[in-house]
């Protein structure tokens, strides 16, 4: 391990489970990036952009998890700023995957993700000095729910459930796209729901008492959420792209 110390600024302490999830996060994201890049050359031309975007998502995350691990190991606390930097760059790219698979909805999904990210950041950082974290979180959450509707998340329960244009396009697509779309819808519905939980853990509001009772650490929740969503998102696209 000492040979790596010229890259890694600080070493994790034994028993540091949170730090370990940062480390696992960085190496798994890096491995996923290599995998997606290798697979990029194997898939059909129409899926190449999707695979490249999947690789970029995990690649960007790998860089930031490396930084986050370092910050955590140096005892500088929860790396909220770096986490937001990572999300600001990767969430729009994840949204873009839907547009790449279906060819519709990019504009709407971009706008919604802008609202979700900007208001989420305002709430967590308090940079604006107006409104409180609950209200900013509610706006961010509303954008998330509209996005979930738009991509057809309700369709995971029933094929006749209402959906936005992207969800309809996913259901009506050919080949393996509907199956991959369903996986992505699960990710948005369940995987992305981890983030509001983390937001509530990191801010004050009516929910503070309830989330404080949960036996969870915010960083572990976020790290697991990121690993599932970013790598899983790419794997879902890869499932549709192979053959």
């Amino acid at each position: 391990m000492n040979t790596l110390n010229f890259i890694l600024g600080a070493s994790l302490q034994p028993g540091d489970f949170t730090g370990f999830t940062f480390f696992i996060g960085s190496v798994s994201m890096l491995a996923a990036t290599v995998f997606f890049l290798v697979q990029h050359g194997q898939v059909d031309k129409k899926f190449k952009d999707s695979m490249l975007v999947a690789a970029l998502i995990t690649g960007i995350a790998a860089v930031h998890y490396y930084y986050m691990r370092d910050q955590w190991a140096e005892g500088l606390g929860s790396p909220t700023e770096l986490r937001y930097v990572d999300w600001i760059l990767t969430v729009p790219l994840m949204v873009v995957e839907f547009a790449l698979l279906t060819g519709v909805g990019m504009s709407k999904l971009f706008w919604l993700s802008v609202v979700m990210l900007v208001t989420g950041y305002f709430g967590e950082s308090g940079v604006t000095g107006v409104l409180d974290a609950q209200i900013w979180g509610a706006i961010s959450g509303a954008a998330y729910f509209v996005m979930a509707y738009e991509v057809g998340c309700l369709r995971v329960f029933s094929d006749t459930a209402p959906s936005g244009a992207v969800g309809d396009a996913l259901a009506n697509a050919k080949g393996k796209i509907p199956a991959a779309g369903k996986m992505l819808q699960w990710f948005v519905l369940v995987g992305w729901a981890i983030y509001p939980l983390g937001y509530m853990m990191g801010t004050d509001g009516w929910y503070s008492g309830a989330v404080a009772a949960l036996p969870l650490d915010m960083d572990i929740v976020y790290n697991i959420g990121d690993a599932i969503n970013k790598i899983g998102f790419g794997m879902a696209v890869w499932t549709a792209a192979r053959d």
Binding site: E81, Y84, V85, L89, P92, F110, L117, V118, S125, V127
Partner: peptide
Amino acid sequence: DKTFFLLVSIAILM
């Protein structure tokens, strides 16, 4: 902070 400005630039790009 710097993150704010990254957020602004990404939002404008999108």
